[in-house]
Simulated scan of single mutants.
Amino acid sequence: MYFLVMAQDKPGALERRLEHRQRHIDYWVGQGDTLKVAGAMLDSDSADAKPIGSSFLLEAENESAIRTLIAGDPFSTEGIFSEEIRIQPVRPAIGEWLPG
């Protein structure tokens, strides 16, 4: 099953986010096929937009597994993510990466 995750940062967390960014990336790269796509949520659509959270498309057996993964993310363990983490089951239907 697939899950769309939107994890909002705490206000004023930008400096800490940047400090722990590589650990965050390494953590998700280490999750292998679970991670389908991920990236920063931005405060605007301008060229100098700042990250305000993270979004993920993940594949896992259930929501509990997703919550465990998010809890292990350095942005969670370092207190960068707020409690505003939305986890929504989704059914992707179109995309080059989907099995035929």
Rank of each mutant, 00 (worst) to 15 (best):
S46Y: 01
G12A: 03
D33W: 02
Q22N: 09
D43H: 03
E61Y: 08
P74T: 00
K50M: 15
S82E: 00
K36R: 15
P74G: 05
F81A: 02
K10L: 11
E78I: 04
L42W: 10
A13S: 14
A40H: 07
K10N: 12
I25K: 12
H24D: 11
L4D: 11
P74K: 03
V37Q: 09
D9S: 01
D43C: 02
L14C: 01
I25P: 05
Y2S: 04
Y2Q: 02
G12V: 00
M1F: 11
G12C: 03
R21L: 13
I87Y: 08
M41L: 14
R67T: 02
I85S: 08
G79M: 00
H20L: 07
A7M: 13
K50V: 15
A38S: 15
A60G: 13
V37D: 06
G95I: 01
K10C: 07
V37F: 08
V37M: 12
L35G: 03
F75K: 02
I52L: 01
A38G: 15
Y27N: 09
P92L: 04
R16M: 07
S64L: 09
L57W: 03
L42K: 09
K50W: 10
D45I: 01
R86T: 15
V90H: 05
I52Q: 02
L14W: 00
K36M: 12
G30W: 05
M6E: 14
E59Y: 11
A47M: 14
E96P: 12
R16W: 00
I52S: 02
G95A: 03
F56V: 07
E84I: 00
I80G: 04
Q88W: 07
G95R: 02
A7T: 14
A49C: 11
P11W: 00
D48R: 06
I70G: 06
R91F: 10
M6P: 01
L18Y: 01
F81Q: 01
D43T: 01
G32I: 06
I70C: 09
L57T: 05
D26V: 05
E61H: 12
K50L: 15
P51Q: 05
L98N: 05
A47I: 14
P89A: 02
G12I: 00
Q88G: 03
E59R: 15
W28E: 03
I52A: 00
G30A: 06
I70Q: 07
T34L: 09
L69D: 04
M6I: 13
R86F: 13
G72L: 12
P74R: 05
G72F: 09
D9F: 00
S64C: 06
A40W: 08
L69Y: 07
